[in-house]
Design a protein around this nucleic acid. Structure first.
Length: 439
RNA sequence: GGAGGGAUGCGCCGAAUGGUAAGGCACUCGCUUGGAAAGCGAGCGGGCUUUCUGCCCUUGCAGGUUCGAGUCCUGUUCCCUCCGCCA
């Protein structure tokens, strides 16, 4: 969310940002609506002032002899009627105004590539050698089935399309890689959380997942209530990432400047409906409805340079994880239309996935400046006593089992076994450092 | 699931027979001081309008009654206590 005053003063910049991000918002109408809102607000306030004065009159007369009181009581009734009408009108305009304000995008940074799709993202870095195999390689699906560590068939039977089971060593690898990443984050000063994954809507409006990606989020409700025809008053939602829960932890908070930055991380189950992705990545563990992720957030002072510093810091951390896992990757600077509405600047990291014969997205690192904190009311008090909205950033440390696609495929051996990345060995609970078919 | 109690100024506590939301602590700044504490003064939620300020909103949330609601009524969320069920 942007400040309406900023929008009014920088109309053309906002229009340009909306055009770049292909977001359909009539900025002129929004500003006009704000004018109407303010006019109505003035009317409401004037009537309230009149009402308050009238109340004083009645009160005064009741203290003395109460003659003439009736006149003011009658007047009060009239004011009440008028007020009801004007307030109703104001509420309508204000609601529409707020709805529109929620979809005004953040202004992308100057150095964000201008572009229309993921094809316009700019590769800024490549790391690692693409492995060459002197044998026919297997996909992670084949490896998973042959080694009896992934079961997609029964996964689909039990959970439906995109369902899966991890078994045996895949379970250890999955938890191992998450646990390894979490330890690294804690070491780097991020406070660990297990956040709720079942949340109220405000958390998702706060992060900006609502109203944009409403279809992507699973809604949970009490089916009994629906069956009885009763309306669901407090729907809950399953988060697609720990980000909304972590940010909402700090909602309505006023930090002291010296207490910033806040660095937090969370491991959580993540749920995604993947509507709109039908027919895309339909096989294997790449695109699934539920997975786990170690996510980081930073809340810092409202300073572009400082916040971009944290963006780089978190990117480096993700890179460090991939380097230690010895997985080849590349870093992309995400273009305007491929980045979300709330983002100021964004990087993706794609990891080499041999069976795809390409890089696949595994990490995402974003600076959203104050676009989320304004929605969530996260401020800090500056030295001079002034309060200002903080900046917020978020980053993927590791997401599994998607990362297992890269690990299994890159580490596969000619005999069909898979070796275990060196850094994960301590996490495999005494199991062999090589995953072989059980006999 | 049932019964009862509670939520007040965006840090904490806390008062208010239906009639201007007291007061205290903490915090920030200033005065004072060799320095600090204490003391004194100012500030310490949001909006509209303005540069003199003025007005409006803000007692968990949403409605209702009333000239007027923190207070009365209805619904609801969360917390606490007890009972029941339960991993």
């Amino acid at each position: 969310m942007l400040d309406i005053k900023f929008i009014e003063e920088n109309k053309e910049t906002v229009k340009e940002a909306a055009a770049l991000k292909k977001i359909d918002i009539d900025v002129d109408f929004l500003i006009e609506l704000n004018g109407r809102r303010k006019d109505l607000l003035k009317k409401v306030e004037n009537l309230r002032a009149e009402r308050n004065q009238n109340i004083e009159q009645v009160k005064k007369l009741e203290k003395g002899d109460s003659s003439g009181k009736e006149k003011f009581v009658e007047k009060g009734k009239k004011i009440k009627e008028q007020l009801k009408k004007v307030e109703e009108e104001y509420r309508k305009v204000d609601q529409k105004f707020k709805e529109l304000l929620l979809i005004v995008p953040n202004i992308p940074s100057e150095d964000t590539p201008r572009g229309e799709s993921d094809e316009d993202n700019v590769e800024i870095k490549k790391w690692g050698e693409i492995p060459k195999f002197d044998f026919p390689i297997k996909s992670h699906m084949e490896l998973g089935e042959d080694l009896d560590i992934i079961d997609l068939k029964i996964g689909a039977k039990v959970s439906g399309f995109r369902g899966y089971y991890l078994k045996n060593e895949a379970v250890l690898l999955h938890f191992g890689v998450l646990w390894y990443a979490l330890n690294k984050l804690i070491q780097k000063g991020f406070t660990p959380f297990i956040p709720p994954t079942l949340v109220n809507d405000f958390a998702l409006f706060g992060s900006g997942h609502f109203p944009f990606d409403e279809d992507e989020v699973y809604q949970i409700s009490n089916p009994g209530k629906i069956a009885s025809g009763e309306e669901i008053t407090n729907p809950k939602y399953l988060v697609g990432t720990a980000e909304p829960s972590l940010l909402a932890y700090y909602s309505d908070k006023v930090f002291k400047e010296k207490d910033l930055p806040i660095k937090a991380c969370g491991i959580s189950q993540c749920y995604r409906s993947e509507v709109g992705s039908y027919g895309k990545d339909v096989k294997g563990l790449y695109r699934i409805h539920e997975f786990m992720k170690a996510e980081q957030i930073v809340i810092c002072k409202a300073d572009i340079d400082e916040s971009n510093g944290y963006l780089e810091e978190m990117r480096k951390l993700s890179e460090e994880i991939l380097q230690e896992l010895k997985l080849p990757y590349r870093v992309l600077s995400i273009c305007t239309e491929d980045m979300g509405a709330g983002k100021y600047k964004m990087y993706d990291i794609e990891t080499w996935m041999p069976a795809r014969d390409s890089y696949g997205e595994t990490h995402s690192d974003s600076n959203l400046t104050n676009w989320q904190t304004r929605r969530l009311n996260i401020k800090y008090q500056k030295e001079d006593g002034q309060r200002e909205y903080a900046f917020a950033l978020n980053n993927t440390a590791i997401a599994s089992p998607r990362i297992l696609v890269a690990i299994l495929e890159n580490y596969q051996q000619k005999d069909g076994s898979v070796t275990v990345p060196e850094v994960l060995k301590p996490y495999l609970g005494g199991k062999s450092s090589i995953i072989r078919k059980q006999t």
